[in-house]
Design a protein around this nucleic acid. Structure first.
Lengths: 230, 230
DNA sequence: CCTACCGATCGGTAGG
DNA sequence: CCTACCGATCGGTAGG
């Protein structure tokens, strides 16, 4: 929030951009106010991540129906064509973004594998980090995207990852049930309810609003794990 | 499921449709197998509802990113232009569909107003009907759509409806807290968690699958209300 | 990374 | 409700 970040558009010729845009109608109204870091010296990996963030911002502001390559590029002050230097095509961009998001949650899950703490504590840790992954990275909003936009082979790979995460959560629930820490719930349905409540967060969460992501994570985890306790 | 429904496409000349489609590339692959009722004698209201169902089916199968007027029409065996006889434009269609879906849940809420039953019972009734509204009407999937696709005045009207529903749910939670039936939770966050879990259902629910909508509704309501109990 | 461009598709309309 | 059509936009590419 206090980063000294400037709109990168100014690194280029603004007039030129306006002309190239106005060919197909008036230029986009009101420039974005959310900060995006885009430095010339940045590594390709860092740039990719900024593109993910731009994707997430457009998604939140204009919705999936108008998530265009043009809008994603505009936000970063680059041209649409340049995006294809970093990603093969739109499906690839979406896929990589999904991967980046899910891998954070999968890491959280992996970290609990070796733990000897009780299932409830492990579940709490995983859910907390899953929530933080969604709220703290703008591109957590990709979770709301429909997987149908992905190319079939990539969709398959992503769904496999997501299933691994969901199964991990269910396993924690089942273990808690087995140990008597949790009520004898249907792990599958309980998992759907818990993860659905969390995945829905980007629909109403506004960074910088009155509800901090920490407060949300704590409240949600308390609430959702309470539903499991006897 | 046992309805004697036939694909309405057959009422017209299939060859003609194929030609008109192939102008812009190959015709759509694999016709839909989900039944849609489309009778010539039906009332405009009934036809509108069928269009909603077609919208919901396309949404579930191809995702929001490819929810086109053409696809919605194809499923019903009518031409794209004909949709504009029933709805002003795409935004209007989406708006009306949102209204149709939300009004069911609002009705459920209104029905509890006069009730003298305890808050927990009233909340259970509202949530159960909200779930059923989403699962039993195919077009419950519109809940996943982003509101940015709606025209601003219509969006405002819909959001007002949605807020009324959310506030009603929160009021029930608060009443339960006040009476000591529920734990002292933050009604706003608890409401987000509960409704998020429910609104996410279309993401994984498959009509005709092993989980019936009744079973889901019962499990979910048990689980979510348990999270509120002391 | 930008320029200049194309093909395809999509929402929408006029006229019947 | 269909036909025939248009303007705009969108994803993507060649060449630098």
């Amino acid at each position: 929030m206090l980063d000294s970040v400037r709109r990168p558009t100014l690194l280029f010729d603004p007039l030129f951009k306006l002309n190239s845009r106005s060919k197909n109608g008036p230029a986009r109204a009101t420039p974005p106010d959310t900060t995006l870091t885009w430095r010339r010296g940045a590594s390709p990996a860092a740039r990719r991540k900024e593109i993910f963030r731009s994707l997430g911002l457009v998604l939140r502001e204009r919705g999936l129906a108008s998530l265009t390559m043009q809008d994603i590029a505009d936000r970063l002050g680059m041209t649409k064509g340049s995006l294809y230097y970093y990603f093969k095509d739109k499906q690839d961009l979406l896929y990589q973004c999904h991967l980046a998001c899910m891998s954070v949650s999968l890491d959280a899950l992996a970290r609990t594998k070796g733990s000897r703490r009780p299932p409830a504590a492990r579940l709490r840790a995983v859910l907390t980090q899953h929530i933080r992954a969604i709220t703290d990275e703008v591109y957590g909003a990709v979770m709301l995207t429909d997987l149908e936009s992905l190319a079939p082979p990539q969709r398959k790979r992503y769904v496999a990852m997501r299933d691994r995460f969901e199964k991990g959560v269910r396993a924690l629930i089942r273990e808690g049930v087995r140990r008597g820490e949790f009520k004898p719930v249907d792990a599958r349905l309980a998992g759907f309810a818990i993860l659905g409540a969390i995945n829905w967060i980007p629909k109403w969460y506004h960074p910088g609003g009155e509800l901090s992501s920490e407060a949300i994570a704590e409240s949600f985890v308390d609430f959702l794990v309470a539903a499991l306790e006897p």
